[in-house]
Write a protein that binds this DNA or RNA. Sequence first.
DNA 1: CATTCTTATGTTAGCGCTATCATTTGTCAA
DNA 2: TTGACAAATGATAGCGCTAACATAAGAATG
Lengths: 333, 333
Amino acid sequence: MVTLKDIAEAAGVSSMTVSRVLNSKTEYSRPSFAVRAQKIRKLADAMGYQPNVAARAISTGKFASAGLFVAKKRAEGVNAGSSVFVRGLVSRLDEQSIALSYAVVEVDQDSSPTLLRERRLDGMILEAEQTLSLGNHKAILGANMPVVLLNHRAEFDAAYPDEVLAAGAATRLALEGGHRRIALLGNTDSDHFSGPDRRAGYEKAMLDAGLKPEVIHADANNAWARAEAIAPLLRRADRPTALIVIEGVWQNAMVAAAMAGLRVPEDLSLVAIGQLANAHDAQLTHVRMPTYWVGRAAADLLVAKMISPHEPQPAVAVPYRHVDRGVTFKPIP
Amino acid sequence: MVTLKDIAEAAGVSSMTVSRVLNSKTEYSRPSFAVRAQKIRKLADAMGYQPNVAARAISTGKFASAGLFVAKKRAEGVNAGSSVFVRGLVSRLDEQSIALSYAVVEVDQDSSPTLLRERRLDGMILEAEQTLSLGNHKAILGANMPVVLLNHRAEFDAAYPDEVLAAGAATRLALEGGHRRIALLGNTDSDHFSGPDRRAGYEKAMLDAGLKPEVIHADANNAWARAEAIAPLLRRADRPTALIVIEGVWQNAMVAAAMAGLRVPEDLSLVAIGQLANAHDAQLTHVRMPTYWVGRAAADLLVAKMISPHEPQPAVAVPYRHVDRGVTFKPIP
DNA sequence: CATTCTTATGTTAGCGCTATCATTTGTCAA
DNA sequence: TTGACAAATGATAGCGCTAACATAAGAATG
């Protein structure tokens, strides 16, 4: 392994100089030194120097690492702690040479992952069902380090998708396609903020268009039963011509449509919102959640908090970036 | 922060003694020393000692950390790099006080994540579409450290779910319920091993029962179209009474059933296999993939390889653990 | 050219831990 | 009791890096 000393010897300077050249952000004001600095950088590169993060950590007391804590309940769902969130996190943290370690938190236990306690993190990102439930985790919240909430709506230090906006966009898409009877389908009473927020976005868009919102819950305890519960609504004379569907409920909607003898999208349009697993593969018309960007936003916040730990950062509601047109939506002629 | 020295002073011994007591695995043969060791351990605990991993790393050259590398293509799917795999990995690695860092690999680029290059990992876990495609990644494969493949079938150093077994179990479940016309529904030609393996497991079970296997592909490019392609098969007089469905295709199967005027499970039974997102919520009858345990198995392998790096470890095909009975299966009366 | 000011470099020490070797302590046999 | 051997401890040094201070080398000024 190449060390600073090796480079220093090769360059004929002290290791401190090399350390400064490679790591301090101060610019060299005198041209001749800038040139020499450049030479050192080239040399380091040529020799394949990689800083020893452990040595740096022990010297500075900073570990250049963050922990991602995911509540077990969420970790068990496939969406949660999703690698797309993580990709966003990692991409941003990597820019700051911050490593991300992963831990799963058992919500109702008082233990914290031994490993992450040992690791002396400089900050943490939390993805948990409810902030309150973390009260148990004294070990974690008492850790006295910057904490950022991921996919959780709060006033400060949180990054989450703008569900109000997304639901509004989905609804307006239907409206612009000439639909008038547009219902919202899915469970909007979840304790997660997304439910109420989506409902709010939908209702506002409908009311703005002078239309009456209709929210249909699909909460039977299995997929077939949910479809059977939905089907009658689709047999009504004044049935909706478009459904705004939340999460995986779009699958139930399709079954219900088939039960009611309707075709998608000729007789019934579907526009989905949420963190959708197979939406692209299904060519579903949907407002794509900016999952990746929520991850990045959370990492942004964390970096900011690492710089000024006691300054609350305003939360970020990340707007959606794309609407996948798909094939499940058709304008009214 | 409490250091070894602090404990040493409190205990009236040298810091080396404390270090040995807390970290060496050698037992004390003389009773009086065992007692003293116990005292030191208690003291360390009472003082809240946490080893400084950075200091240890710099001293030993071992970093007690592993990297999880997920190919970008996979990371974009929701299943992939799934937190359930990761939970398994973390739970096992945590036992060895090994931290897991996360990186996403861009398959067709020659770059490796800067961060993980710097971090001096002691090993890595790779989840990649194909081993071959990693040829690009000289930086990664040339890293000269233990590597274990996750969710990838290979002869050595790999952990993956036993898809043959799972598909066989699903098929036998249908057979034991008295079904005779059992078709396999889904894409079994994927480049991922799971496709062919599942097909093999299904076909073997059918042939063993003296029945003719029937494999139906559902490869239209959107969900509704897939259902429409499946529906005619369900209208045949000799239609299957049970379907073994792969991955998300069960959703299409339900739509197709509704189109054909069949009820689930009264007229058509569904048994699913694969890494299923909402299977539990849908109360789907399915053979649950041992995702968590595959993660643990991979971590096991890695730990073994860290101890003897040049000894290939036989691959582990992790058998399923549970069959979720759900409500989509019904025996033939 | 001397003096001051600025900028860059070098020196030293230490972060917390463990490898290594030297030393002490205990145990058992003679 | 003594010597021989094992078991446990202690002293020292060093891992690679950076903080902090001391020093040297440029630039600016008269």
